[in-house]
């Protein structure tokens, strides 16, 4: 299962005119590979992620997520696609304050109405995979920034997504913790055969990715395999 964007154009209203956020962008990410999207702020990286996550509908072009053509899907169908086939790792962990670490992960299974007992075991297994087995019952305010980000990653993996979209995961972390998170993402991508897109402006850890694309002014300007 892969992620494919073909000639995607996205514009936003900007006063009396429209601002082009994505300009005929095409991108293919294969299963089991980690592709980094780099570029300066405002280059369109986040818009690319939003389109891939079906949170924004492009003006033109095709977006195929895990074999599903998203053009023409309604809101409920897109939500179901995100729930079942897409994992999102947010820039800020965006954890829900009332939930413990294991519940943050478990909430994904609940959204999909999966069997509760198996889900709890899997949530604990994922927390173990990200090194937080002993922090399962802690709430966000009881975790460090790096630990919150790892819960964020575990949550994104809960429903075994085919496509993993990762938005600036290291922006709030120091170098060492950032490297650890990137190592984790690279390992999980290969282990779980996800098509992973990593949006970042930090080029420090790009040796861990399978390919890098550069964005500038809404266009993909360079493809560089690792």
């Amino acid at each position: 299962m892969t992620l494919t964007l073909t000639d995607v154009t996205l514009t936003y209203p900007d006063g009396g005119t429209r601002l082009t956020a994505l300009d005929r962008v095409s991108l293919h990410v294969a299963a089991g590979t980690l592709t980094a999207v780099v570029g300066p702020s405002g280059s369109g990286k986040s818009s690319l992620l939003a389109v891939a996550a079906t949170l924004v509908t492009p003006d033109r072009g095709r977006v195929v997520v895990a074999g599903t053509e998203t053009t023409g899907l309604g809101g409920a169908e897109k939500a179901a696609l995100r729930r079942e086939r897409v994992g999102i790792v947010f820039q800020q962990p965006n954890l829900l304050p009332s939930l413990t670490a294991v519940e943050q992960v478990l909430v994904m299974a609940h959204l999909s109405a999966g069997p509760a007992r198996a889900a709890r075991a899997r949530a604990r297994e994922l927390l173990d995979a990200v090194g937080l087995a002993d922090k399962a019952d802690r709430r966000p305010h009881e975790l460090s920034g790096g630990q919150r980000q790892r819960v964020n990653i575990a949550r994104a993996l809960m429903n075994e997504p085919a496509v993993l979209l990762v938005d600036e995961p290291t922006s709030a972390l120091d170098h060492e913790r950032g490297a650890a998170v990137l190592d984790l993402l690279a390992a999980l991508t290969r282990e779980r055969s996800t098509a992973t897109v990593l949006v970042t402006h930090d080029r420090a850890h790009l040796d861990r990715v399978d390919g890098t694309v550069t964005m500038r002014d809404g266009r993909l300007t360079a493809h560089a395999p690792a």
Binding site: A76, I88, F90, L96, P97, M108, R155
Partner: peptide, 16 residues
């Protein structure tokens, strides 16, 4: 509101 946005982004349906 921010929690609701996160849940929606994760795939929660509006009826849910």
């Amino acid at each position: 509101g921010a929690d609701v946005a996160v849940l929606k982004a994760l795939g929660a349906s509006t009826p849910y």
